[in-house]
Nucleic acid binder design. Structure first.
Lengths: 172, 172
DNA sequence: CACGGTTTGTTCGTTCACCGAACTCTTCTG
DNA sequence: CAGAAGAGTTCGGTGAACGAACAAACCGTG
């Protein structure tokens, strides 16, 4: 069966990668996971994704070992990035840089800084301050000049992400 | 109208970027463009994409200034990456690295080297030999150990890409 | 233990993009 | 001028995405 998930039999790692993360919503789920989102309801609210689609995507990503389903507080299950999922950060980060460069007339929406030295982290993961390679967990996401000011109808997640926050730190 | 191309009104550069390049086939078109593909028929043959979809995608990418339609030999038009399109290379390159890392049991399918020193170029664009940042046009794509050997039923494009080739150099 | 609310799904009818094949129009080529 | 090749367009069929309604599990509270 020719699932739209699959492409032709090309022996190309980009094709393989897109068969995993190339569907609608998938990279945004990974983005949110890096931002600290872990619960079904939070993904649902923040993304505005249909429930059935979220269910399917989460199951698929768990099956591919991009996310892991872990018990959270009160037996509620949460979805956590695996090492493999975390390895997708450069993809998401470079998309963010491209969007900021060409589709953010008011300026960049997100700026990433090194937690220890405060220097800015480049899309490639290097700190402009100290020159070191910065692990994702040592990166703080801060609002840039192009991020709209908080609005009352923002979701709780959106509001939380409008303040500086270390990546990967669980919300809640 | 809620085009599947669009997402919710999130003020996020990743969302913006995915609205441009997040649809099926789009990043593979950009990949092929970096590899030197320029003609409608070559994209068609190499990707195995439905014609109508290719038409729509190329027009959209030209409209977004990711590709430019330029007259080729004999008034045939060709599609050429713009600077904005070329800026998508880190996205494609990091997807390639991720796919090579987790979905290439026989080893990496593509290895990118610096044309002047022969050192390997990292996904971040740095040469492991000389330490310089390597422009895309100074990068040579070579087959890696995981690339299957040439087969008779390969398309002409696939066959051409099985040999070392500088990126961005037009095929034909 | 009963109850209401929250969380995490599932089901279902509609809409829309993707698909492949056939067709059209223009431009080379001999 | 005839034929082929390139670059699309058209069209019916299929499957994924959508939103709303429904359902089950779990929670804290009285």
């Amino acid at each position: 069966m020719a699932l739209p998930r699959e492409y032709t039999g090309q022996a190309c790692s980009i094709v393989r990668a897109l068969e995993i993360v190339g569907e609608r919503w998938t990279l945004l789920i990974v983005r949110d996971a890096v931002f600290g989102v872990r619960r079904f309801s939070d993904f649902l609210e923040h993304l505005g994704i249909p429930r059935a689609v979220l269910t399917e995507r989460l199951e698929f990503l768990v099956g591919e070992d991009v996310l892991a389903r872990v018990p959270g507080p009160g037996k509620r299950s949460e979805y956590e990035l695996t090492a493999k999922g975390l390895a997708l950060w450069p993809v998401v980060r470079s998309l963010s840089a491209w969007g900021d460069e060409y589709y953010a007339p008011e300026g960049r929406r997100r700026v990433f800084v090194h937690d220890s030295c405060g220097g800015e982290v480049s899309p490639a993961g290097e700190c402009a301050g100290c020159g070191e390679r910065v692990p994702v967990a040592a990166t703080v996401m801060t609002p840039g000049p192009g991020l709209p000011p908080p609005s009352p109808q923002d979701s709780a997640i959106t509001a939380a992400l409008a303040h500086p926050r270390p990546l990967l730190q669980p919300l809640h």
